[in-house]
């Protein structure tokens, strides 16, 4: 007699507990705050021509990609750098003027510019611009004739074979480092 009552009591309390858990769970889901760490920034794309900037304006690659000399990454310029020139430069061409207006708008509103990745090394590769640029490798050797491109195109597939094609011409003394996987693979 008392055993059945005990069991019934246990069943009831179990059911009540389950309901309470479900209700609190639902309440928690509803009051979960929004992720505040995400910065609300408008990402825009801007028209840009390498040809105009390197040929007409005669700007050196390193002026915009300034970290190539001293860091592994060549880096992309910030809009501040664009505005060094574009805050004062005027152009005749209507189309170009419109493009520059877009740049100014992005700059004034603090928008983030999404430059497309043309070349991207995989995660396990260590490549340093500094090591190459300082040793006299020109930008064009790997990136092609960027100065004649409006939009940068991928001219070579930058795989290991492409690296080794050049590196095999290195002097004998550098061979040990060349065959050391850890030089380029991280």
């Amino acid at each position: 007699m008392s055993e059945t009552r005990d069991r019934r009591l246990l069943l009831w309390s179990g059911a009540v507990l389950t309901i309470v858990v479900i209700i609190t769970g639902l309440a928690l889901v509803q009051i979960e705050p929004e992720d505040e760490t995400k910065i609300n920034q408008t990402a825009v794309t801007l028209p840009f021509s390498h040809e105009v900037h390197t040929q007409k304006a005669e700007i050196d690659c390193l002026f915009c990609h300034s970290s190539a000399l001293r860091a592994p990454q060549a880096t992309l310029p910030s809009l501040n750098k664009c505005m060094i020139c574009h805050s004062s430069i005027t152009v005749e061409d209507d189309n170009a003027r419109q493009n520059i207006e877009q740049l100014k708008q992005a700059y004034e509103n603090g928008w983030r510019v999404q430059w497309p990745d043309v070349y991207r090394q995989p995660d396990f590769v260590y490549f340093s611009h500094r090591a190459h640029v300082n040793n006299g490798v020109s930008c064009q050797k790997c990136h092609g004739d960027v100065q004649n491109m409006t939009l940068v195109e991928k001219v070579v597939d930058m795989d290991m074979g492409f690296c080794l094609d050049c590196h095999q011409e290195q002097p004998e003394a550098d061979i040990p480092r060349l065959i050391d996987c850890a030089t380029c693979h991280k």
Partner: peptide, 16 residues
């Protein structure tokens, strides 16, 4: 895994 001739340490190549 091989011995680096440059650094004299034991290197693990994850890709391999």
């Amino acid at each position: 895994t091989y011995h680096s001739e440059v650094d004299g340490i034991n290197v693990q190549v994850y890709n391999r």
